[in-house]
Nucleic acid binder design. Structure first.
Lengths: 208, 208
DNA sequence: TGTACATCAGTGAACGCGCGTTCACTGATGTAC
DNA sequence: TGTACATCAGTGAACGCGCGTTCACTGATGTAC
């Protein structure tokens, strides 16, 4: 049973989404800290003042974009890390999944990579919080794996964050590969796979 | 024998450096893509038009900042990776070296982390080129290590880039720790050390 | 050493422009009876 | 169902302000003789 919004609410959501979409498109060629409110409303085709009905500022819009870009990724992360087949296959599938996500949502990925260390504090914090959640979730999945027997919680989280950072690096390499000859994509795949494998090997021998 | 510049050249260099310093300071709280030329000249105390005597644009200034931030780091990288003592000690010293560099040049480190994926293409490219050079240099040092016997060039470069990315991640964690209680710094040290160790273990068993 | 001319880093006025924010408003939608 | 009033998403004019860039300039420094 989906609750049907009133016409007014529905229209408001639609405008809000249009603002988010327009902002995301504009952010492909600049940083959030230089994004203008008027730029965004102009792209959508509403009056500049309409912006304030939805966001206090472009920084506020940025925080909403973080939620849009990363909020829905949690289930994906969990299943990717936890799938229980052969190690090498798991890595291959994880990397294909990242590549697919970059293909499907390049602007979102670019936004996160760009603003993770960007000039707008609340946005940096929102991204850091989301990535910390990913870290926790990956840790929870790693903990279930028999390979993790004897591992301290600290070390599991250390490894989980290593994986999360590695995923982000890989995603941003795929992003750059979008504007390069297609064989670049394969090269990124190969390198990313080997780096993941090396980390996996380190994991296996951690307690030696 | 140092070549003594003429008075005119010396003064020009001084102004140029003042512009770079002022820009770097302003960039602690925003991205390059929102940095204004007038902001920079105002901070230095020269007329806005003086800017053009030194840089075509703020993007051009950004490229100069990349050189300033990373250009002098190459010898440091080489000696860090190549020093030939115990593995665990080498990691510890590498991490202390990163921490020390972040303490000494926080604004430079922040600038690189921020603009690596930032909104200004020529700056992104300058950073990418410098990091690629680091990768090559680390690879060259790794190749000298007997542990690398049997490694392909591709795999050596793969590992080298993994190390470079890991250094950058660690540096940006130390940066965040500067604004946190002092025990955070120790925590970052610990985590970074273990991640490096895990990668090192993966390296040792790569050819198993 | 002194003189006459060239160079050029930095100046200051002027320009047109887009910015963020305020305000009172309009008219479609929602609600109470 | 119909009516009367409330809500509120989006409007459009207006504001003061700082922006990047142009231009002709000044006066200290450099150079040739």
């Amino acid at each position: 049973m989906s609750h049907t919004l009133g016409i007014r609410q529905a229209q408001k959501q639609k405008t809000r989404q249009a603002l988010l979409d327009a902002a995301l498109a504009l952010l492909e060629e600049q940083s959030l800290s230089s994004l203008g409110l008027r730029e965004v409303t102009r792209a959508v085709g509403v009056a500049p003042t309409a912006f304030y009905r939805h966001f206090r500022s472009t920084a506020d819009l940025g925080v909403a974009l973080v939620e849009e870009a990363l909020g829905s990724l949690h289930p994906m992360i969990r299943t990717t890390v936890s799938t229980a087949d052969d190690h090498g296959q798991r890595i291959k599938r994880a990397i294909e999944l990242i590549a697919g996500h970059v293909d499907a949502y390049p602007a979102h990925v670019r936004f996160i990579a760009r603003e993770r260390h960007g000039g707008v504090q609340p946005v940096r914090e929102a991204i850091r919080d989301q990535l910390a959640r990913f870290g926790q979730e990956v840790k929870d999945e790693l903990a279930k794996d028999p390979v993790s027997g004897g591992w301290s919680d600290e070390d599991l989280l250390m490894l989980a964050n290593l994986y999360v950072d590695q995923m982000l690096i890989t995603a941003s390499l795929f992003l750059e590969a979008l504007e390069a000859p297609p064989e670049e994509r394969d090269r990124v795949c190969q390198v990313a796979e080997r780096q993941m494998r090396l980390i996996g090997i380190g994991r296996e021998h951690w307690l030696d």
